[in-house]
Amino acid sequence: MSIETNEVRKIAQLARLELTDDEVTSLSADMSNILAYIAQLNELDTTGVPPLEHAAEAGETMRDDTPRPSLERERGLSVAPKVENGCFAVPKIIE
């Protein structure tokens, strides 16, 4: 399994990572190596094996939909990089 640099750039776009050219080159090599190792899973016939998504006990995780206090606005905003008018502020999204 070989991951070419153009594919690395495509995945980086999906992952919202800018990546320098050097990073693209080394990730291409690293990901190819790791995926070549991981290909060993294909030795196993998993036809009909149910996927295990987590190891939590199956149980009741639903709760009543009752209002309860949550983090106050000021405290939530206190750690934000940029705030305007009591909201998180971000650069322009569309022209």
Binding site: R16, L17, E18, G76, V79, A80, P81, K82, F88, V90, P91, K92, I93, I94
Partner: peptide, 20 residues
């Protein structure tokens, strides 16, 4: 993603550029 917490790098571009 630099919106709610953590250190933002704003290069003067749009939202996507800020994320990246």
């Amino acid at each position: 993603d630099g919106v709610r917490y953590g250190n933002r790098v704003d290069n003067g571009g749009d939202l996507l550029a800020m994320y990246m």
